[in-house]
Design a protein around this nucleic acid. Structure first.
Lengths: 191, 191, 191, 191
DNA sequence: AATGAATGAGGCTTCATTCAT
DNA sequence: CATGAATGAAGCCTCATTCAT
């Protein structure tokens, strides 16, 4: 019936499910496992969410919303583009890369349930609007820049997701450093 | 003599499953769907594969093997590093990006079934060994280059997978162009 | 409150399965047959038992428990040993031989699923502790008596199981008479 | 098609299956396991036996035949009854108890496939015909003696089968000793 | 309202036996 | 004849969701 009674419980279900989905995958995580983990009766879950699918969709949607609203806020702020870019790279992205469970779900499970292409498109457009006037080198075509943005954005997410496994020698910090440097060298600026 | 193992059947199961897995996801594709698609009796599937999981593992493993052996061949060839890089970007990567179903499975479903981190690590090391002596700018640290390789490699794959949906304005060609240019500008060379 | 666990259903599944297992054997009795016989949906079976194997294990375990607790009660009672023996032969064994389905399962199917050796050992020890001080003839060695107990106990069960088929001319009563007489003559007493 | 080509192979299939059936049970032993154990192609098995069931039936039938023919031979021999009994207890039974796999199958798996009741009946009758005139105590009724025979015969088999697990302190020798003594004391003779 | 037993379609896999080669 | 790939009915069990209590 999806009434939002206790917001604390709702968040707990969401957080716990996120961890479980990220670790074992959506289909390998049963409602009964979630129920056990949050220590609530099955019925209660269905008081907050219409279905299991609704849970993962909500995780993705709310996680995405949070990221997007941060971006929008910066974008709409009166700051200089270069300043916006700095915040994006030094604050927003690092904060995003903190939530590896979310990224993991976004990249793997969410594909089936949400139209991430649209989300990526939307976010890329926003960043593009910040970037496009900064470049000192006007020889970069729009197409090239958009491609660069998408490849690098998705690359960052995937790499971060990979880092989680601790198999690679690189770290989240390395990734952020890379983003900063590639941005600076591509745009010919210094942040 | 009894009937011989039919390699054609095996390949057909693999190809058909790849498509289905890529489109609907591993868990949303039932054995009975595969069976219907390949028009074989259920039992036959199980004479070629031990389990449903074995099918997806084989898809990933063999697909990866193909990619990796191409890379190794180039790597081992006596050509100049710059020449190798050219082949990588102009032949191997484009050919890899042709098989979007494979990439899609690799990025989403395979995570649960195979240790892709190791694969990425291995492939990145191989490319790194080609790249490391090319750069005219020795100021690029090893860490930076490895990070760059991982981010961009994964970025390419994810973007290509996204392109499949036809929602974005960019194309596979744009991605390849981007790779070429970023490589050239990063290493300060012209391929 | 949701529905309460229905002990009646549990017992019904157990009883019905016992009959079916005894008649056709464990592997020749399918879950769907049980389901049909108890007229419940499949799922219900699995809310009461973890698996088909769990059902037969429970049948054996609970049946055994019942027998064993009767024995223990007598054993612990303050009565004279000869009195205990009388109860054993005139009440407990006849009551045990009443449940031929249970005996049949115990002797045939249960071997694979439970450690009956341990059960037999345990029960024999208990009976031995009652018997050992009764005998007027101390020339019976401990080893001999234990062997006698095991052979005769298992013999009774197997014979009873055989009687079920109505092929033999002997009956359950004959078996009980035999037990009584052999006991009396072996121990040199009159019950 | 069950042609008996190579008797050696046939025996090998029978022996191997007997071991496997005894250890894991009939239904937990697949034809493919037998095939692996005897290192023959599946088809070959079906050259010697019509079906899996045919294998177990043959094991029981031939094993039983062997036992029965020994008994018949003794029975038909011109020896004195007491002499016959001696051979039965000192030779035939010990030899029977040697083949625990056979006994195990007889008691558990065979129940479903063969009419062991008839076999037990038949064998008991034969032994009874030897015994009936020996007894110095004519107070033993026919019913009593038949019951005793059945209970003790089945008890011996079951106990022997139990001994296989090495959990009990008694041994095959103890069982044989017991049989001898109980026979002697029941019939009031000395073998 | 809160609970968790009940539901049953549908999933994956096995395996004795056949029969094309 | 010898072989072992092919077959497909049937087995066991899961699990998201509902709804009686």
């Amino acid at each position: 019936m999806a009434r939002q009674r206790d917001e604390r419980k709702r968040k707990q279900i969401l957080e716990t499910s996120k961890t479980l989905f990220s670790h074992s995958g959506f289909y390998n995580t049963s409602i009964s496992q979630i129920v056990k983990a949050v220590d609530m009766p099955v019925g209660t879950i269905y008081t907050y969410f219409r279905s299991k699918e609704d849970i993962i969709k909500t995780i993705v949607e709310e996680g995405w919303q949070e990221l997007y609203s941060q971006l929008e806020e910066i974008s709409r702020s009166g700051r200089a583009d270069r300043e916006k870019l700095k915040v994006l790279i030094e604050n927003i992205i690092p904060s995003l890369l903190q939530d590896l469970d979310f990224i993991n779900i976004l990249l793997t499970e969410a594909v089936v349930f949400t139209r991430i292409e649209e989300k990526i498109e939307k976010i890329t457009d926003l960043v593009f609007s910040i970037i496009k006037n900064i470049s000192s080198q006007s020889n970069l075509s729009r197409k090239y820049m958009k491609t660069a943005l998408i490849v690098i954005f998705l690359g960052i997410l995937s790499s971060a997701s990979l880092v989680k496994t601790n198999t690679t020698e690189i770290t989240i910090e390395d990734i952020i450093t890379f983003v900063k440097e590639i941005t600076e060298s591509s745009l010919g600026i210094k942040l």
